[in-house]
Design a protein around this nucleic acid. Structure first.
Length: 466
RNA sequence: GCUCCCUUCGUCUAGAGGCCUAGGACACGGCCCUCUCAAGGCUGUAACACGGGUUCGAAUCCCGUAGGGAGCGCCA
């Protein structure tokens, strides 16, 4: 039974364009997308590029490319606009400035002249004395004269939010349930950097609210950031979105997914030949339980998505499960589609033959070599099969083949008569000699695709030097 | 250090006090099918972190313990 959502939910994905689309981010984007689609709401793409140093346009474009490849179409975004434009934070400076002015006018924010070194030292001292490393409030009570003095010294201030004391912040987390924090555990944090750009806590919260996001879905690592964003929104009189914190996606060793786990970006999986539907099927089940166990086509996932079944515990990414969904997806594709996916101009009959022996495009390479090329060196098991069959067997096979028994059915019939062998003893040596492997697609049709001269040569080679 | 979060088979998860001698999926093993592999069918191994409560009854509620994780950044 899927969730009954009387109200359309507006969700968003707000990546910073500082790298490729990580699988973990792809997953939260996907869940957000599904939630919006399921409820008939909107899905917004917002680019958090206030860090000019690290943000790059090429990352933004790559991010959007991966999102599209996965089929996560957004209703509002930097490329298509929308009622809350612009959708790149680097272009929203004017909006932020108004809010800063509002905060400063009410003494809910104040300039801080502490240098990065000052702060680092302070944190170090706090840590050493067993205190939480929080901003000490040094600049909170500065008079106008003191501020002027610091400006005169050439110090460029940041803007800090003045966190109110003795406040209890409560919110209902969509995945964790009721949460309760004390504002006394929160230090005054920076909402504007000394270069005038906006800091994450600020623009992220403010934009979610201003853009009409009703449900923020993000990683667990943001859980304890939420109360400070709520405080900020409250101070500004802005509407609070709902928040939901999903357990992180981790690698096989339990550590957050990173480079040393191999592929971690959507792009890398795509380049290896994974299909977007396979990845979606996998992500759908990582930290989420839908109402079905089976494979789902991409466009049906929204109907089976259950936001109330989002996971709290970290989910391990296991490639063997992805491989399973890859196979399931492949099974449902037409020969034409698979041929395009393989991208090698293979004849349709060849694709049809090998499709069940291929999970990734690279798996097709050896089969292509069987039909037009040279065989790989034999493996241990294969050599044993050849040796067990014996030279005479292959001499007989080559002879029979040369006499015109080029069809497997005829070939085995003649060989059965001449050598007395049958079953696996008959087929396996032929399979190995002809294809180089003990496993593979059906042999008869495969043999038809091997040039006669090549087939003969392969049989003969084992009659001579084994 | 402080605050917060997490903990069911190897993995992903179902489970919202009795329907649980804990279900499904992936992986793994066996059997069937079969020239092989894959697919398919059948089948097997395998989990409630630990300790106390509450209750007629706890995987489910409460309290501790242990182990993981996050945040406390002029990163997002």
């Amino acid at each position: 039974m899927s969730a009954f959502n009387p109200l359309p939910v507006t969700t968003r994905f707000a990546p910073s364009p500082t790298g490729s689309l990580h699988l973990g981010n792809a997953r939260t984007a996907f869940f957000s997308y599904l939630w919006a689609r399921q409820s008939g709401g909107r899905f917004i793409l917002r680019i958090e590029d206030t860090d000019a140093e690290r943000s790059q346009l090429r990352f933004r474009d790559a991010l959007m490319g991966e999102l599209r490849w996965l089929g996560l179409e957004w209703d509002e975004g930097p490329d298509i606009g929308g009622p809350s434009a612009p959708y790149s934070q680097s272009e929203r400076g004017e909006f932020y400035r108004q809010l800063y002015a509002q905060l400063e006018a009410r003494d809910q924010a104040y300039p801080c002249y502490c240098t990065a070194e000052d702060l680092e030292l302070s944190r170090k001292l706090q840590r050493m004395s067993g205190q939480p490393p929080r901003y000490a409030g040094t600049c909170r009570g500065l008079s106008a004269a003191q501020r002027a003095e610091r400006v005169a010294r050439g110090l460029k201030p940041t803007l800090r939010f003045a966190v109110p004391k003795d406040q209890i912040i409560e919110f209902a987390d969509a995945v964790h349930g009721p949460q309760r924090f004390s504002s006394n555990d929160i230090g005054d944090f920076i909402i504007r950097r000394d270069d005038g750009t906006s800091a994450f806590f600020f623009c992220n919260a403010v934009d979610d609210s201003a853009m009409g996001v009703t449900q923020v879905l993000r990683g667990d690592d943001h859980m304890t950031n939420t109360p400070r964003q709520l405080l900020l929104l409250d101070a500004l009189g802005l509407r609070r979105p709902g928040y939901g914190h999903v357990g992180l996606l981790v690698g096989e060793d339990g550590a957050p997914l990173s480079k040393r786990h191999g592929s971690t970006s959507a792009q890398e999986f795509r380049e290896r030949g994974f299909l977007s539907t396979a990845i979606l099927n996998q992500l759908f089940r990582l930290g989420h339980a839908g109402d079905t166990d089976g494979w789902l086509p991409a466009d049906q996932m929204r109907a089976h998505f259950r936001p109330q079944h989002l996971g709290r515990a970290p989910a391990r990414f296991d490639e063997s499960q992805l491989l399973h969904w890859q196979k399931e997806t492949l099974e449902r594709m037409s020969t034409t589609e698979i041929r395009a996916w393989l991208g090698a101009e293979d004849p349709a009959e060849f694709v049809d033959l090998i499709r069940h022996n291929v999970v990734l495009p690279a798996d097709a390479v050896p089969w292509r070599a069987v039909v037009r090329g040279d065989l790989q060196p034999l493996g241990e098991g294969e050599r044993r099969i050849i040796a067990a069959a014996g030279r005479e067997f292959f001499a007989a096979a080559a002879a029979a083949y040369t006499e015109g028994n080029s069809e497997l059915k005829m070939l085995t019939k003649v060989l059965k008569e001449r050598t007395g062998r049958k079953g696996a003893d008959l087929f396996m040596p032929l399979r190995v000699a002809l294809t180089g492997s003990a496993h593979g697609p059906e042999l008869a049709p495969l043999l038809k695709l091997i040039p006669p001269e090549t087939a003969r040569r392969r049989l003969e080679s084992h009659a001579q030097n084994s």
